[in-house]
Design a protein around this nucleic acid. Structure first.
Lengths: 349, 349
DNA sequence: CTGTTAGCGCGTTCAT
DNA sequence: ATGAACGCGCTAACAG
């Protein structure tokens, strides 16, 4: 049976023979109600299939119980980790009985707070963080609640979850070094906006770590920058491998399938001629041919943490910010192996 | 400079020396305003950096300008197309100046309208549609605005966008038949909930089309059901290929990488020993080794269409529903080839 | 323990 | 062309 108008608090109050505030209070539990009236109210709510109106509630209470997730302008070719962030965030928000509003990133940094200003959300979650991210500066200046996936250079007071890229790169390179590799390529991610090339945290931190390791282990290490488009990655990796003839490579997020293809397509056998360590979301690592030695990118979990941190922020008053630098393990699979000694002979031709 | 309280219509009215309704009307344009007052008001809005409060607006107007996208409970291992739906939907909503609220699918069909009932959204978008989807029945019964990605058996009056799976399967099979293949496997998607196995539209329609084609061309056609988990797909495909020794296969959404791996790992060369047609989002097709003959799943576009259709529904009164059955082209790449004649000799051993 | 009422910020009808 | 005032549905003082 369908009413033409959704029941309101007033309807419940009437039906139950009580006042609206009483109904409101049995709903919120913010003051004690006698068992008898509570039951009457609950019955009325049941009978009329009453559902609180979220907008009215938001207007009156000042809280929307919604979080905004700012997507980097959604392209058809999105990155897998970003999708996992979204999925994880969606799960965590509904678990906490919040809503998740997806929003495309505003062009101007000044607009990051828009969702909060417009009263569509209580706080925002940022991703694709730059080393000095102006959006974060704004959000702090404007006093908005937020959390970030990734972290800027100066992360004082900001709640974030990120990967410890320096640690992961070290783990990957040490793995290769232990297997005798010395000529190693780093396929580093490059943001689509060239001017921000040196601003993107993961790229920058990976680069620095890689350079330090090259020095420490005295490697012939070369960094190769690759864009997001897999086809371009393929081309670039193809020529880099042909030219530099590395025995191994480390590919950052999203690049490994294309890099592996590039190697195979020029006749290299994996891992005999070329070892590769990837950095992908788990579901991508198991399937390739051969299976990828991989650092599992815990994107789904990071998405969840992002919202949990934000909700904590919204609840707890002046708690210290949560800051988590994750160190996912390296899983060794078929794509890496000891560099064969016979290679030395071949190499000299 | 930051105020402790966001400016409201009243603030603008005061600053501009006019009434609140006047301000409201210059914003909505719903009645004519003299140029002088309009300018004064606009200046005040500019000066105070006024932003309309979306919740108050929603409460007063009855429209939230938000759409809810109901996600199948977001798992870590989400399917690529679903992510693309989301990305496309996010783009289209923000283009139309709407918000997109992500919501996990309610357990009970009766709850599909929740987002609308709670006044968080004006309409909902459904995905993962079953042949007789109770959610759709509910939504119609309750008179809610909605659109769906996929389509049920009885789609009278529902706006949807879907793929013409029967057509695509035909296209794929005919391609293989033309190349001399006769022993063909269909790797069909299987929903996670076994009881709904025969309810899932794409699976059901693909199955029927495949069976009809087997009959029409007198093929040794076998359907192999695979779950979503790539590892399981690999196992199942591996043993199916070993046992049935097909010369070709057609893999539905998401399955082709695992199927290809399974074939390669048992020593088959692609396409010489085994041809494969995939059905994947474009970004997945180009990179595999070898490149996949593929029907590009236009998931991103479908996500966009889903919201566009819903917005049309919300705007236009009693227009006929939009119903689109897309037929993406088959792109022939390296993974399929003519079945070699020498194979006949080999086959008999 | 319960009722009354004043907002929350904006849209809109009714006056003027 | 403009203003005054009411209502959207709910929360939270304030008053018993």
């Amino acid at each position: 049976m369908k009413r033409d108008r959704a029941p309101t608090l007033a309807d419940i109050a009437e039906q139950g023979g009580v006042s609206v505030s009483t109904v409101s209070y049995v709903l919120s539990g913010k003051r004690s109600i006698s068992d008898r009236t509570r039951k009457r109210v609950l019955k009325a709510i049941e009978d009329l299939e009453y559902r609180p109106n979220a907008r009215a509630r938001a207007l009156a209470s000042g809280s929307t119980r919604a979080l905004a997730l700012l997507l980097p302008s959604p392209q058809p070719r999105e990155r897998t980790e970003q999708h996992s962030f979204v999925a994880g965030a969606a799960l965590a928000t509904s678990k906490a009985d919040y809503s998740l509003v997806l929003s495309t990133s505003p062009a101007r940094a000044a607009r990051v707070g828009q969702m909060v200003e417009d009263n569509r959300a209580d706080g925002v979650i940022l991703m694709e963080i730059e080393l000095r991210d102006r959006r974060i500066t704004r959000l702090i200046a404007d006093g908005f609640a937020f959390s970030v996936i990734g972290h800027p250079d100066n992360s004082d007071g900001v709640s974030y979850v990120d990967l410890d890229f320096a640690h992961s790169i070290r783990q990957a390179v040490e793995h290769l070094v232990e297997h005798g590799h010395r000529r190693i390529l780093l396929f580093n991610v490059m943001p689509d906006v060239p001017s921000r090339k040196f601003q993107y945290g993961p790229a920058q931190r990976s680069r620095a770590a890689f350079a330090a390791l090259a020095n420490e282990f005295d490697l012939e290490a070369t960094e190769v920058e690759v864009p997001r488009d897999p086809d371009r990655v393929y081309e670039i990796a193809h020529s880099a491998i042909a030219k530099l003839r590395p025995t191994a490579g480390v590919a950052l997020v999203t690049a490994s399938p294309a890099v592996m293809s590039a190697a195979i397509h020029q006749g290299l056998r994996i891992p005999d001629d070329f070892s590769l360590v990837g950095f992908e979301v788990p579901q991508l690592a198991g399937i390739p041919i051969p299976a990828l030695t991989n650092i599992d990118f815990p994107a789904y979990e990071m998405g969840q943490m992002g919202v949990e941190m934000l909700i904590d922020r919204l609840a707890g008053a002046e708690d210290p910010p949560t800051q988590r630098l994750l160190r996912p393990p390296l899983t060794i699979r078929e794509s890496t192996a000891r560099v064969p000694t016979r290679r030395r002979a071949v190499k000299s031709r």
